[in-house]
Amino acid sequence: MIPLSWYLVLAFILIGLGVYGMMVKRNLIRVLIGAEIIGNGVTIALVALALYNSPFTFTGQGLTIIIIAIAAAHTALAMVLMLMYHRRYGTVDLGQPVRQEEITGV
């Protein structure tokens, strides 16, 4: 068997990469990709911890199923909100939201 710490280190690096993407990037779609990478790291850690702690094996797997289902819901809602942001500010830039009227001068 692989030691538990290998999985935890992998999940730790994935969470770090995702937080870096969410904090440093300006493009909204890349921020969303960072959030999904955090979700993947968390599910790997949860399934590994549940497997190595045998009374909670199926608790961890069931909770992972629910996490994946809710990740689908929040991605759909985030995408629609991003569409609305694009409609209102004319860009997907988080750095400087500008009203569309100021760009086009209407």
Partner: peptide
Amino acid sequence: VYTGGISALIIFGVLLLPRAQD
């Protein structure tokens, strides 16, 4: 869900928002 649904939704979002490709 992830490969079939969420990444397809993200690729679709990139297609819908051409300014994201800037």
